[in-house]
Nucleic acid binder design. Sequence first.
RNA 1: GCGAAAGUGGCGGAAUUGGCAGACGCGCUGGACUUAGGAUCCAGUGGCCCAAAGCCGUGGGGGUUCGAGUCCCCCCUUUCGCACCA
Length: 855
Amino acid sequence: MSYAPKDIEEKWQTRWAEARVAEVDVSAPGEKFYMLNMFPYPSGDLHVGHGRNYILGDALYRYFRMRGRVALNPMGWDAFGLPAENAAIKRGIHPREWTVNNIARMKLQFARWGILYDWSKELASCEPEYYRWNQWLFLQLYKRGLAYRGKAPVNWCPADQTVLANEQVVDGRCERCGSEVVQRVLEQWFLKITDYADRLDAGLDTLEHWPEKVKLMQRNWIGRSVGADVEFPVPAIGGSIRIFTTRPDTIYGATFMVLAPEHPIVPALIADHPQRAEIEQWIAGVRNQSNLERQEAGKEGRFTGKYAINPFTNEEIPIWLGNFVLMQYGTGAIMAVPGHDQRDFEFAQQYGLDIRVVVMPNVGRASARPDGLKPVLHEAYAAKDDSAIIVNSPLIDGLAPPQAIERIIDEIERRGIGKRMVRYRLRDWLISRQRYWGTPIPMLYCETCGIVPVPEEQLPVRLPLDVPFTGREGNPLAKDERFVNAVCPECGGAARRETDTMDTFVDSSWYYARFISAHDDMKIFDSKLVNRWLPVDQYIGGIEHAILHLLYARFITRTLHDMGLVDFEEPFASLFNQGMIIKEGFRTAAGQWVPLDDVETRDGTPVRKSTGEPLTAEMAKMSKSQFNVVPPDELIARYGADTERVYTLFIAPPEKEAAWSDDGVVGASRFLNRVWGMAPHPALRATLSHDAGEGLGVRALLRKTHQTIDTVTRRIDRFEFNTAISALMELSNAIGDAVAEGLDVRQSYLVLLQLLHPFAPHITEELWEMLGGEGFILTSSWPVADPALMAEDVIVIAVQVNGKLRGQVEVSNPPAEAEVLAAVKENANVQRWVEGKQVVKTIYVPGKLVNVVVR
RNA sequence: GCGAAAGUGGCGGAAUUGGCAGACGCGCUGGACUUAGGAUCCAGUGGCCCAAAGCCGUGGGGGUUCGAGUCCCCCCUUUCGCACCA
């Protein structure tokens, strides 16, 4: 009987679905395991690159189930967002219809991959039963002062009349229409994530099972800096300017001050400047530049004509404006220490400003120090650790920077001119979008009462579905009178509804908790159950979410914690980022991607069939626009889903980028065919017994089997799926050899099926059934390795002396010291025996090298 | 520029604690079966050498060690992240 994946796979997919095997009663007893793939945006068709992500999750889910855990593997849809709206504009399909259709297609695809989700807990963020709680959450945040309306410069696309998220701006242009994005100051809704900056930063230390890389990225994004705020008096305007510095120990070296051109005090400083008009023009120019342009322009500045007093040297220092000082960070003003800061140094060089050395390498004796008072910038002169020493600074001379910093801040605080300060790079989260397809922000603007929240009992604020989509006149919601006109719940007068919708990252910041009570229409979720099931035990998704989604989710979880709704602060105990699948695409010299059916190979080089022009092959992320996607349909039709699953996991370590190879797939296919082909052999039907007198072959196979159980288990635990599968291939090869020798392999074969199940679920279920297994293999238990059976009976040690083989001796396993010593002595006259585990370690006798190696 | 990770056959990649480098798979070579092979099966496959023996081999150069892909120092290359954050 030959292997027909199609029939088998459909059969088992149907059976699993009918038996609702993946449905979990969240209040059932047992040790829980919450497995979660990041819920996808329903963009439609899935390719094998997406498959990697979900197959990985399914394999883990099945593994933990077999290990006896009550495993939950839910799935939902991040269903609001721009592409649905674009489809509506381009093709006249309603965003909802487009989304619902895509969801249906993706569900089918998941089923064909043999992925088991608990669909009873399915959710879609675009449905009122979900986004209602999004709105509720927003109101709670508003009540706590964590949601506020404020002015901010935002990315504005003039053609589409909307704000764009930073990630929707590509090279300064709108990713959708290509128009140049401009900065506009608008009133927007923000969530006060900065209130949680310290907790979000500190919490990273508790995430032991997160990739270091992601934690580092978050840490950099939060950008915690410790230092001090210091006031510098400016007599000319009868006030002072506050700066932030992380190096207060270098304050004696502050020879000038630089303000961001946008700093609010600038107009007062330059009011009587003779070239005021020119400076204002320069400021306007800098304002209009993006950060990138600003940096490319190089360092530029203008002298304001005014001076500040350095509070420690009491010298007058010039106040400059500089394009390299950012208004958004710190106080928008710096004390410039050109002797010890690269940027300040460059600026000082350019404008001929004083440079003073106040830090030197600490080389012990003063006389041995370099003649360091030269105005140069050198690495050692910027050191912040004990390798440096402060000079030219009366109050802190001779101290190392760490002590000097403490000392000088104490003095700053004593004098009342500043204080210790921790600042963050993190900014508040702008969540307003002038977009239709999103959660309406549940707020009202009343002519008499001002900003009024929609009362909770009026939720959800439903997104009207019958609105026209033209795409060129801004948010259709704003023109929908029925939606906009509302009654103020406070005074009963006329009110206007907020027509902005929420950033979809709000939707995804708490969905993992909603799965636990997905259909509760009384509350956001059941806290008791959520506290039982969360944090998520294993979260899987792409590295592209390293900052945004994961940071927002960590933030929102903390707000839920502070509301008393959950008793944990970190939503994801363990995080795994799978790598992308890439594949060769072909492009012309001009960089244009060419469809595969227009590519052929002539004389070993790819050319474009239609024009004959030469093409270059390039590995790229799978994408329709690059014509290099591998759709799973064909692959499954030809080889079956199990083959795709095994190949996808075998191709490379899962965290790495993997190059798809159509040829490589056949390896996985052959492997499964061999596994199938062994099954009907008569040897399988015999009963296995391990009586003495059995052939060595059976013992060896049994040993291999138990070693494989051990190996595969450990490798799955460590996410080493590729080598777990290679170990199964080895076992399969060993069983194949044993079958050829006519040995009874039934027991080993059943173990192989169990170990293989997470990777190739359909074929293993089928074979399990054929061999008379009880129930689903999915619900069978994971085999346990018997250490006694794993060990070799005898080992051969080779005695090497000075690299030369002196003899080989067979000893029992584990080897008795006396036995080995005797053997070694006989061959090499050795005195001492060092025992390893199974492998015999080095024996070293002075003057004589003896290397004992296990054979 | 700063930070992080990684360099192993023709390719993807293996190699607990330093202990037979190249598992497993692809590809390739030869063979079997075939009207046929982009199917299947068998054998071989790091390099030098007809072969054996032997020698050389984990980006380059030093070092530690009886022994280094693995540990230490210097250099080179690639990828990723941040990008004037005071």
